[in-house]
Simulated scan of single mutants.
Amino acid sequence: MAEIPTRDHPDNTPDPAVRPLRALVAVSKTLDPAIETVICIPCFRRPDYLRRTLESLAGQRTSRRFAVVMVENDASRSESVPVATEYLTSGKLTGLCVIEPRQGNCYAINAAFETALQTFPAATSLLMLDDDEVASKDWLKQMLRTAEATGADIVGGPVFPEFDEQRKRGLRRHPAFAPAYEASGPVPVIYGCGNCLIRRSVFEQLGTPAFDLRFNFLGGGDTDFFYRCKRLGMRFHWVAEAAISETVPQGRTSLRWLVTRGLRIGAINYHVQRKATPTRWLRAKLTAKLLAALPLSLVYAVHAVLTERKGTIAMHPVTVAIGSALAAFGLEPQPYKASKIVS
């Protein structure tokens, strides 16, 4: 297997003492370094879903040339590699697949973006999909058109859930699944990287690693990344037409999962805010604010019961508030550890 050195310094010199080499396990017949658009896909134990993702990319209605960078984040099982190899060697897609040996959400995402930036030096637009998502036919065209027309640094789009069970479709409005915005236009920030376009200049300003490894097993490295971009004055745009669908397995519609999701969002919110509070006094104020949010969340819950008439939606603000308070005392879920991932 060939190996791709990763870069840790602004001058792009390798530092293998800090980051181990990533193994190149699949590559298309040709790789044109002049390609300007790269789609990144972190992969973990969902080969059947990945096949659907890649098929949707192969079927994009666009004249733009693009490459795909896949990162297998399970070095022991590597279930994504045969699927990646099939699509790359058959000519359906152009790109490569590497193995990131260190398991964790942020390790995988960083590996994808770093490999893309290194392999395609002319790339100006880097997009990301998860390996359980399916892109609509005009997704890439819409994302690129919006980025060019608006000059936005970051473009986001909706991810719509597809539920295995008919009776679970009422959860489309649940905050864990509903898109952040409904209409296209400038937005203050986006929250997730499951459907995004990021300009190369963004990575150049933020440096490496782009996604903070403190969020590696909690999740939320994307939320932290985008809030850091916001603080630097970068511009965000939402394009409602660039739709992605996400397969939601039965395990992710259970009451237990929804509660854990709320707790995790609360913990992420705490850590993102804590990074902006450098002194003990400010951190104490943040903790007090989060504790005060607990009774307020009950008011939101009552309002949600009256408007949505669905208990799982109503309890979400409460679980988020509890999650933030628990995180302030060092208690939080770790859903991106391999043994705890629901696939």
Results as ranks from 00 to 15, higher is better:
55 E>Y: 00
276 A>E: 05
168 K>Y: 03
160 F>M: 15
275 K>C: 02
284 A>Y: 09
147 A>W: 00
178 A>H: 07
340 K>H: 15
170 G>S: 00
288 A>V: 02
24 L>M: 09
112 A>T: 14
176 A>T: 12
198 I>Q: 05
80 S>M: 08
148 E>R: 02
250 Q>V: 08
305 V>P: 09
326 L>Q: 09
175 P>Q: 08
242 A>P: 04
165 E>G: 02
257 W>V: 06
303 H>V: 15
156 G>C: 04
51 R>A: 15
272 V>Y: 01
301 A>Y: 04
21 L>R: 15
114 E>K: 13
301 A>V: 01
33 P>D: 14
81 V>W: 08
296 L>Y: 13
253 T>E: 05
285 K>V: 11
240 A>K: 06
67 A>L: 03
31 L>V: 04
76 S>W: 13
158 P>Y: 11
343 S>Q: 14
11 D>G: 02
313 I>A: 10
99 I>T: 05
10 P>D: 01
97 C>L: 12
44 F>A: 14
225 F>A: 00
225 F>T: 06
148 E>K: 10
337 K>W: 12
14 P>G: 05
146 T>Y: 03
184 S>P: 01
335 P>T: 04
220 G>E: 03
110 N>G: 00
209 P>V: 01
248 V>P: 09
122 A>R: 08
161 P>F: 11
159 V>I: 14
113 F>Q: 01
203 F>M: 02
234 M>P: 05
207 G>S: 03
309 R>E: 15
106 C>L: 04
233 G>P: 03
198 I>M: 09
42 P>E: 08
342 V>E: 15
91 G>C: 07
213 L>P: 06
150 T>Y: 02
52 R>Y: 10
144 L>T: 08
177 F>D: 06
133 E>P: 00
314 A>M: 10
106 C>H: 10
6 T>M: 09
251 G>M: 01
75 A>T: 12
319 T>H: 07
298 L>K: 11
212 D>Q: 04
230 K>M: 15
137 K>V: 08
89 T>P: 10
338 A>W: 12
205 Q>A: 06
46 R>N: 14
94 T>R: 00
160 F>K: 15
289 K>C: 07
318 V>E: 05
244 I>M: 11
230 K>F: 11
28 S>R: 02
6 T>K: 10
56 S>C: 01
157 G>Q: 00
268 I>S: 07
28 S>V: 00
263 L>T: 14
58 A>Y: 02
150 T>C: 08
102 R>Y: 09
157 G>K: 05
